[in-house]
């Protein structure tokens, strides 16, 4: 059977898990990626964060060898995505935005099929070494168990819940024990509990030494899972760093003020956050007493507009909105996904 994946032992010459330089891609005259640079060290969890239409899926598909870039180069697991496509494919797995399992097969059948199609671990680059029947069966059982799906192994996937389907999809991508896994918006459309379960799975994978590259529109997700975050907007990276670095880059704190009706309309255009229902506006600030006082004075010179205020540590939301604000209006997040209405000035 396949050896359990683990951190590479011994001295690793270790090129980074992913390195991309100047990736460009256009569909017709629409430039989707305009020079993307990325470096992801081995074993890291990296998030590519961006609004809908930013080019996340395009970037993942290029790195996973499913689409060719117009310009630029990339290596994944040390292999060139263009010249060594098969080697890259051997080292990676992709779980895309759309489920890649058959509705009309059972969970076990799906996994056995994927296992049969996967090269035997340790088979090197030999193409004929697909996994045998018995080994495929064992591998499927193991994965079903690991993803808490054994109880539904013999049910058609059609009867699975969204969360179960996503777990099966991820399980199917792991049959070959990839070094680098790509997850394209893994929790979009999942309920909060399923999302938590998926996060646990990602952390487990990472703990075992697998490099995880995930895309997300959810800042919270990037914050919780990723070692580093690249913020993609309009086809280029607008920021990169750890969650804390990004937060520091913009402003440490956010001042939320509850204002009168009249002041709301006057101040709303300048605010980083707006919650019309409670007439609350948020403004970035360093958080020092002097700075906050000056900000309050500037917002409300005659002292009649602001009813209450509160100071918060900046969230990644603030960072994201600040960073993606300059580019022409990215599509707003679907209603209900954010507690606060983002402002695109």
């Amino acid at each position: 059977m396949c050896p359990a994946p683990g951190p590479a032992s011994g001295p690793a010459p270790a090129p980074p898990a992913i390195r991309a330089v100047g990736l460009r891609k256009a569909y017709r005259d629409v430039e989707v990626l305009r020079g993307l640079d990325l470096t992801v060290p081995r074993g890291a969890v990296h998030a590519l964060l961006g609004p809908n239409g930013a080019g996340k899926t395009t970037a993942v598909r290029i790195l996973a060898t499913l689409t060719e870039a117009d310009a630029g180069s990339a290596t994944v697991a040390g292999h060139d995505v263009r010249a060594e496509r098969s080697r890259v494919r051997r080292a990676i797995s992709l779980t895309g935005q759309f489920a890649a399992v058959d509705e009309m097969q059972t969970g076990a059948e799906n996994l056995r099929m994927m296992a049969r199609l996967t090269p035997r671990a340790g088979a090197g680059t030999s193409r004929s070494a697909r996994t045998g029947r018995a080994a495929a069966r064992a591998r499927a059982a193991e994965l079903l168990d690991r993803f808490d799906l054994s109880y539904a192994a013999d049910r058609l996937v059609r009867t699975y819940s969204g969360g179960m389907r996503r777990r099966l999809d991820l399980a199917a991508s792991l049959v070959g024990q990839p070094e680098v896994i790509f997850l394209d918006e893994p929790t979009t459309g999942l309920d909060p509990r399923s999302r938590q379960e998926l996060w646990t799975v990602v952390r487990d994978l990472s703990a075992q030494g697998t490099t995880v590259f995930l895309t997300t529109q959810y800042l919270e997700e990037a914050d919780r899972l990723a070692d580093r975050i690249s913020v993609l907007d309009g086809g280029t990276l607008v920021a990169e760093g750890t969650a804390d670095e990004l937060k520091r880059r913009v402003a440490d704190h956010r001042l939320d003020v509850v204002v009168t009706e009249a002041a709301y309309h006057r101040l709303a255009p300048q605010a980083a956050h707006r919650t019309p229902e409670t007439r609350t506006l948020g403004f970035p600030t360093g958080g020092g007493a002097r700075e906050v006082r000056a900000l309050l004075d500037a917002l409300d010179p005659d002292g009649t507009g602001i009813e209450r205020f509160a100071l918060h540590t900046a969230t990644l939301d603030d960072v994201f909105l600040t960073l993606t604000r300059t580019t022409p209006a990215p599509a707003p997040a679907p209603a209900g996904q954010r507690a606060e209405e983002p402002s695109h000035v």
Partner: peptide, 13 residues
């Protein structure tokens, strides 16, 4: 329609 072809291709099929 679904993602299965991409999955197969990423298995180098």
């Amino acid at each position: 329609k679904g993602g299965i072809i991409d999955r197969f291709r990423s298995l180098d099929i």
